[in-house]
Design a protein around this nucleic acid. Structure first.
Length: 576
RNA sequence: GCCCACAUAGCUCAGUCGGUAGAGCACAUCCUUGGUAAGGAUGAGGUCAGCGGUUCGAAUCCGCUUGUGGGCUCCA
């Protein structure tokens, strides 16, 4: 057990791995090897193409080096000496890294056995101070993270201060894997993909579709309550629309290829904005009708790179919970504050309490007058302050068309998800020449804000599955209660109870299998059914139900009325 | 798109040296009529992802394609 910061241990482990690679593959050219969240990686370029079996051998070498307790020896060289040494060693990537070091800064090296690395450190005293290491995977990685550069070979490893800490890390990973939405989506029969339909195109099964229906309904009702109006717009539009919006100019490769109809090109929409703008342009607009808040569950298709697809979290066809707010400069501040408040309310309704905003400001290349950017930024900042939130700022990280706030929410096991986004747009109102008639009788350019609270319904659903580990709260659960008859003698009573509970608006099924009660309970629990209702001859005689629920366990024998009341309370308060 | 890996029954997986396909769960039928996490028997279920090659013979070896997973890039 050592007292070094964990990053120091991990970075030192990266050096040890590089030393092992150098020993096994003397022609290897090294790039960099930093610490990561749970370990380290190192990038290199060499003739040999690494395969998984190689990792075992490299790991063996590393353990040998660690066992020898080799010291990490620090030394410094002048720029000329360093360049000469790296050139002699044919370390071309290191030479480029050397050139990055600003004039006047010290040029440090570390030596571990035969391996010498350009590095500012710090490191542990000797390799014996590295607690536990395990190599994980091989990946390709572009030099300097640029797709135009050569792809280097990267090895990822885990490193911890002790074997126990590493075991604990892998245990947590297993826990996370148990709630993986792709695994649960199949087990609970929520959704699937089909090779015949196409990559990244989701098929919602009945149970998944029911959950979606429930949160869509909630979403729509809340939008009407909060002063929004809903729109429906088509899935395809002619090329002229996308030429005006600019998408064909700067986003063509992200769109599905066009289909030709009556000698015109139609594109499947990658976003809803141009359609909403067409609604706006359908007649002259007055300042008196602003702000307009138009929302749509708009299904869009984007040609995401195949390697980017990931379950429900990154798909090619998805439904945005989109809205566009068109308003005057005077209204913008209140509108933004209200959108932010609304987002927090929606996420809290699903049991997410830790929510953090990230503000992105003007990038180097941007459209729109600087004053408008400033007004927008001020309104975003004020909204964050008004809600008493702490906010991180990404200077220059905004889109070219406007500044934005993204929300990140933390889930039940502490992972952060990027979700809601509130974005100003100074581009489309210009391109479509959107105007309203002001008090002065003259035309003015309105402010336009895009916002999505859930993001995409597919992604939102994936996050929900992981948040709840498949155990949806009662208001969302597709099957809220399951009746478990002890024997077939009480089937009639089960039907009667089911009918009564359905009358009261609950989703109740009966397990008709001729299996034991124990087996039925196991099945119902695996299916994450919130309420299990056992009925046998005792209950049938007394007109009761022996209930248990997921949260509280045994509830004893209840009348149908008592049970319904309890469930109604849980549904109405969206108890998680 | 790029790097590495994977693809066998609805699901989870075995399948040795290249010799023609297996288990558990789920499903169906029958027996059992039961009391809080698996009662029993029988049965059905397969273009071994697809196409091509090597071979007397391919789930197995080789190539390509498709899909999926872990990364890189991307996410306007």
């Amino acid at each position: 057990m050592s007292n070094y910061p964990i990053e120091t241990i991990r970075h030192s482990a990266a050096h040890v791995m590089a030393a092992a690679v150098q020993k096994l593959y003397p022609d290897a050219k090294f790039d960099i090897g930093p610490a990561t969240e749970n370990g380290f990686y190192y990038d290199f370029d060499m003739e040999h193409r690494l395969v998984n079996e190689d990792l075992k051998e490299i790991e063996k070498q590393m353990k040998k080096l660690i066992g020898r307790k080799l010291p990490f020896e620090h030394f410094e060289l002048s720029r000329a000496e360093a360049g000469k040494m790296l050139a002699e060693a044919k370390q071309s990537y290191k030479l480029e890294r050397l050139a990055d070091i600003p004039e006047g800064e010290k040029i440090g090296f570390y030596r571990t056995g035969d391996f010498v690395d350009l590095c500012r450190g710090p490191h542990v005293a000797n390799t014996g101070d590295i607690g536990a290491v395990k190599l994980l995977s091989i990946a390709g990685s572009y030099f300097r993270g640029d797709e135009k550069n050569k792809m280097l070979q990267r090895i990822y490893g885990a490193a911890f201060e002790s074997e126990e800490a590493m075991t604990e890390h892998f245990r947590l990973l297993e826990e996370a894997a148990k709630r993986d939405h792709r695994k649960l989506g199949q087990e609970l029969d929520l959704f699937s993909f089909s090779e015949n339909v196409g990559p990244g195109l989701v098929l919602w099964h009945p149970k998944g579709a029911f959950i979606r229906h429930t949160f869509e309904t909630f979403w729509k009702e809340e939008h009407y309550k909060n002063g929004y109006e809903l729109l429906y717009t088509p899935h395809i539009g002619q090329s002229v629309l996308w030429e005006t919006s600019g998408h064909l100019g700067f986003y063509r490769e992200g769109m599905y290829s066009p289909m030709e109809i009556d000698e015109k090109d139609y594109y499947v929409k990658p976003m809803n904005c141009p359609f909403h703008i067409e609604v706006y342009q359908s007649r002259l607009r007055s300042y008196r009708e602003l702000p307009l808040r138009w929302a749509e569950l708009g299904t869009v298709y984007r040609y995401e790179k195949s390697g980017a697809l990931h379950g429900l979290l990154r798909v090619r066809g998805f439904t945005q919970d989109d809205a566009h707010i068109v308003c005057t400069p005077e209204q913008i501040e209140d509108e933004i504050a209200e959108v932010l408040r609304f987002s927090l309310y929606i996420w809290k309704s699903f049991g997410f309490t830790e929510i953090k905003p990230y503000l992105s400001t003007r990038p180097a290349k941007a459209v729109g007058e600087p004053e408008r950017w400033e007004t927008a930024l001020v309104s975003l900042r004020k909204a964050v302050d008004k809600l008493g939130l702490e906010c991180e700022v990404d200077e220059g990280g905004g889109a070219f068309y406007g500044p934005k706030i993204d929300l990140k929410v933390k889930d039940a096991i502490g992972r952060e998800w990027q979700t809601a986004t509130i974005q100003f747009d100074f581009n489309l109102p210009e391109r479509f020449d959107m105007t309203y008639i002001g008090e002065d009788g003259k035309k003015h350019r309105p402010y336009m804000v895009h916002r999505a609270l859930m993001g995409s319904l597919e992604r939102f659903f994936g996050i929900l599955v992981e948040q709840y580990a498949g155990a949806f709260p009662l208001w969302l659960a597709p099957e809220q209660a399951r009746l478990l008859p002890v024997s077939e003698k009480v089937t009639d009573y089960a039907r009667k109870v089911q009918a009564e509970l359905r009358q009261k608006g609950f989703r109740v099924e009966i397990d008709y299998h001729a299996s034991s009660l124990g087996a039925k309970i196991k099945d119902a629990r695996n299916a994450r059914i919130p309420y299990l209702l056992v009925i046998g001859e005792r209950e049938a005689e007394e007109g009761l139900i022996a209930a248990r629920n997921r949260r509280e366990g045994e509830l004893g024998s209840l009348t149908i009325g008592q049970l319904a009341e309890k469930m109604r309370f849980e549904v109405e308060n969206k108890i998680v």
